[in-house]
Each structure stands twice: as structure tokens, then as C-alpha cells.
Design a protein around this nucleic acid. Structure first.
Lengths: 120, 120
DNA sequence: ATAATGCGTAACTATACGGTTACATGATTA
DNA sequence: TAATCATGTAACCGTATAGTTACGCATTAT
């Protein structure tokens, strides 16, 4: 059974994506795998800092490391992003402006009533 | 000109979404606007903690506050999530497993060559 | 064998973060 | 007017985070 599909938690993905440097790292790897050092040179921070970010991305399974001699190639693994996408999915309904306006209006009125449940 | 469309930074949105409690808050408000206190009662942490989370969500424009007497209604504003969605958009290409495999394979080989540019 | 390269990790520092309790303020109720 | 309610904020605390420099360990080159 190859190509087994695994699901990842939204938690670790969202956490990893919170840092702008890590998002930039993913953006970079999106254009192709790279050894860690070469990747680090693209950023204004030190190499160890990038190394630590890569470790976090590894823990979130957003990148995969492959050793090749003294190099370590990092490859993007977009799988965990599916968890983020499916979280977002539940909000897409609200993006249709007119529908959203109506929906929130109705719900707001409903909420207002609930505010004073003892009324009368 | 009503209904002007505004774009928000992915940065603030990603930051706001990094915390599980804040995501849960949004999930809750997705079912309808609520006053702050009522919302807080749904969580195991103190009310001030929720108040602070709401403030951060406010700063990220993910919620909108409406004062009504001594209550403050919080309404979901999904707009900033569009920034997250469009960041994700660039990764959807990779989700088609077979295509992604081919793509990363090719790119990894390409990267390998680049590792030893002085070769020969 | 020795030097150089690529990269991770340890130790340390400053700041950000999430939570708590105590308090301040404005609106409602008695 | 006094008591109560809804809610935000200040002050404080412990931990997490991102960054830095120093160092260790393979692997490749000389």
C-alpha cells in the first residue's frame, strides 16, 4: 500500500505558519528543494535561526529532510496544509458578501434578543 | 460607495489564528454574534483571558465589536481570512499527489546538481 | 592526515504570550 | 442614589519564542 494518505492536525500547521520567516521558507521551497545552507542565505537572519525554523517545519511535517552527503535537502510537503484548508472551508460560505450581510444581520438580531432573556 | 472591499495582511491573520482558543472563538461566532461574556462562558479560561483574545481578533479585524447598552456584541468578519486563503492558493497545485510527486522529484534532482556547482 | 565545508545543537538573552487576580468604568436595576 | 452587571485594562507571572554566538560532528577536499 504505497501513497497512504495521512491527516495532520490543524494545530501544528497553524502554529508553524504563524511565523513570517517560516511562511517565507515554505514559499521558497515551493520553487524547489534546496539544501539548508543555501536556503539560509536567502534570509537576513543567521543560519542557526533558519535551522531552527526548519526543525519546526519538520515537526509540523511541512518539510521533509533528505540527507545527501554533508548536505541536507529540504523538500516541501504540502499535505498538512490541507488541514488549514479544511478549517478555512467552513468560512468560505461567509465570503459571499451579500449572503454574509444578511446572515450576520439575522444572527445579530437573534443574539440581541438573547441578551435579555428575562425581559417580560 | 458602500461595501468597499478592503484587503488585509496575511501576517495579522496568521498570527491571530495561531492560537487554538482564538480559532475556537471564531468557530463559535460563526454560529452567530454574541456578547463577550456569554462567549467567555463557553471556555475553560477566565473572562479576561477571552477579553484579551477578542482584542487580538479585533486588531486582526477578524471580529467587529458593536456596543449595545452595557453589552458588546462580537460579530465574525471573515474578510481577513481571504488573505490566508490566497496564500494557501499557491499550494493547492501541489495537492494533486501524482503531479506533486513528479514535480518534487524533478526539482530535487535539479537541486542536487546545484549542490556541487564546481563539479568538473 | 589535515583543512574546510555543511549543518545541527547547546547555552544564553530579550521579548512576546497566555493566563490569573484586582480594579476601573459605564449602563441597568432596585 | 446605591447596588449590580457587563466588560475592558493594569499588573504580574511563568513559559515559549526567535535570535545570537560558540561548538561539535560528519563528510568532502587538499
Amino acid at each position: 500500500m504505497r501513497n497512504r494518505s495521512v491527516t495532520y492536525s490543524a494545530e501544528s500547521a497553524f502554529h508553524a505558519l504563524a511565523d513570517p520567516t517560516r511562511r517565507a521558507l515554505l514559499d521558497l521551497l515551493r520553487q524547489g528543494s534546496q539544501p539548508a545552507g543555501q536556503t539560509a542565505r536567502a534570509f537576513p537572519v543567521s543560519r542557526p535561526a533558519i535551522s531552527k525554523h526548519l526543525r519546526q517545519l519538520r515537526k509540523a511535517h511541512l518539510v521533509v529532510e533528505t540527507r545527501s552527503g554533508r548536505h541536507r535537502l529540504y523538500r516541501l510537503n504540502p499535505e498538512p496544509l490541507k488541514a488549514v484548508d479544511s478549517w478555512l472551508e467552513q468560512y468560505r460560505v461567509f465570503w459571499s458578501a451579500s449572503l454574509a450581510s444578511l446572515k450576520t444581520f439575522v444572527e445579530t438580531e437573534y443574539a440581541k434578543e438573547n441578551v435579555r432573556p428575562k425581559k417580560k
